[in-house]
Lab assay of single mutants.
Amino acid sequence: MDETGKELVLALYDYQEKSPREVTMKKGDILTLLNSTNKDWWKVEVNDRQGFVPAAYVKKL
């Protein structure tokens, strides 16, 4: 969790967005987890953008 109590995830792999609903991340990025109710796609925030990334590409910290 960060200082505001939000849950964080670590990008395990690079991911290039394939639609406007997704976000690009690089391996090693720390992202804010917004929603993990879907087992396949998690909603995150990175670089002031919100979108989805494959759940298998990130790990909760």
Rank of each mutant, 00 (worst) to 15 (best):
M1P: 13
M1W: 13
M1V: 14
D2I: 14
D2T: 13
E3Q: 15
G5M: 12
G5R: 13
K6H: 13
K6T: 11
K6I: 13
E7Q: 14
L8G: 03
L8S: 07
V9T: 02
L10F: 09
L10N: 04
A11G: 03
A11C: 12
A11T: 03
L12K: 05
Y13V: 11
D14I: 02
D14H: 06
Y15K: 00
Q16T: 14
E17D: 05
K18R: 14
K18C: 10
S19Q: 07
S19L: 07
S19N: 13
P20Y: 09
E22C: 06
E22Y: 06
E22M: 04
E22N: 05
E22A: 05
E22T: 07
V23R: 02
T24A: 06
T24Y: 04
T24S: 15
M25A: 02
M25F: 11
M25S: 00
M25C: 06
K26N: 08
K27E: 07
K27T: 07
G28P: 00
G28D: 06
G28L: 02
D29A: 07
D29V: 04
D29Q: 15
I30N: 02
I30V: 10
I30L: 07
I30P: 01
L31E: 01
T32Y: 12
T32I: 15
L33S: 02
L33G: 01
L34K: 06
L34W: 05
N35A: 09
N35C: 10
N35P: 03
S36T: 09
S36N: 09
T37A: 12
K39C: 09
D40L: 12
D40V: 14
W42I: 05
K43P: 01
V44H: 00
E45N: 06
E45M: 11
E45H: 07
V46I: 15
D48H: 11
D48E: 10
D48F: 10
R49D: 04
Q50S: 11
Q50K: 10
G51T: 02
F52I: 06
F52N: 04
F52R: 03
P54G: 02
A55N: 02
A55F: 02
A55I: 04
Y57E: 02
Y57L: 14
Y57I: 07
V58P: 01
K59Y: 10
K59M: 14
K60I: 12
K60V: 12
